[in-house]
């Protein structure tokens, strides 16, 4: 048994050395990566100081052009949409990291049903924030909920598990647009998409997710931030009741919700879309100008 304990001690020591050296190297790579999410998260944590912050998933990322919003609203704007972060936990974490350093005046959250509905892997993209583990207590609580807290606590390498491939390819190929304030334009597609139809299945609400959406709202209110929900256009028709739960949530919490998914301007215009759920640059610019006017009206009404 003594011999085994010796072996075990040796393995743990060696692993600790590999883990810490590897973790430091991965942090270095993460700070230099130009993939589509690492620089965004880095800016949210370290440098965003805009008055208006747009938050959401890839739909937010490529739908809101900050320069257009800035011109209309007269306020600096940053697009903090993160590709693939299709759950409220990731959005909440992004908000916590942002509020730790800066309080914007206006925050728009591009909402979608995955923020409230039951899913198999609800926490899959919270790992994007794992490199910043230990920086914010509220964000760390999400890791506790996902069951990764102790693994991140023990292993520095594991903190980079979700981002490692993007960080490695991000050293060679840049997906980042330095001067676009977070906006990641999509290119014109070779073939325009066919219209989609979705929302036939019933939305089963997950109470934990709803609770986190409430916490998101509360964080904004506590910090005096004007919050607005948005649903941007999609090329296709959802069932009328598809977004009913989000509308009900917004109504009950007295949050304005700008719903563009049925907008006549976009519904018949496949030429604006990269795919059924994402506008390409031209569509995004048109949509941003419409959204900016509507947001300006809402903000004026508030005053």
């Amino acid at each position: 048994m003594k011999k085994f304990v010796g072996y075990l001690f040796c393995i743990i020591c060696l692993w600790f050395v590999f883990d810490r050296i590897g973790g430091t190297a991965m942090w270095w790579l993460n700070q230099r990566s130009l993939d589509s999410t690492s620089p965004k998260i880095r800016e949210i944590v370290e440098s965003v100081d805009a008055d208006v912050v747009m938050m959401g998933t890839s739909r937010c990322n490529c739908h809101y052009v900050p320069s257009i919003l800035q011109d209309t609203l007269g306020m600096t704007t940053y697009n903090a949409g993160i590709d693939g972060s299709d759950n409220i936990f990731a959005q909440y974490m992004a908000l916590c990291y942002l509020l730790q350093r800066h309080k914007p005046k206006v925050l728009c959250l591009e909402v979608q049903n995955s923020f409230i509905e039951e899913e198999e892997s609800a926490f899959c993209t919270t790992g994007f924030f794992a490199p910043y583990f230990g920086l914010n207590e509220k964000a760390d609580n999400v890791f506790r909920l996902s069951g990764d807290y102790w693994l991140y606590q023990i292993s520095h390498l594991y903190r980079f598990n979700t981002k490692v491939l993007a960080n490695l390819t991000g050293q060679v190929k840049s997906h980042w647009y330095q001067n676009e304030s977070g906006y990641l334009p999509k290119e014109r597609p070779v073939v325009f998409p066919s219209p989609a139809h979705w929302g036939e299945e019933e939305v089963i609400v997950n109470e934990t997710k709803v609770q986190y959406l409430k916490m998101f709202v509360d964080e904004c209110r506590t910090n005096g931030i004007a919050l607005c929900f948005v649903i941007s256009p999609a090329y296709g028709i959802a069932e009328p009741s598809y977004y009913a739960q989000l509308h009900a949530f917004a109504d009950s919490h007295n949050i304005p919700l700008l719903d563009y998914h049925t907008s006549g301007l976009f519904i018949d215009h496949q030429e604006y879309f990269k795919d059924c759920f994402h506008l390409w640059d031209e569509g995004a610019r048109l949509y941003s100008s419409i959204f900016a006017s509507d947001l300006k009206r809402i903000l004026q009404l508030r005053r």
Partner: peptide
Amino acid sequence: RLVQCTYIALLLAIISLFG
């Protein structure tokens, strides 16, 4: 013994990063 321990520790590190 050292080679065995290094092998296990290294694989553990690789798995935690790339798994």
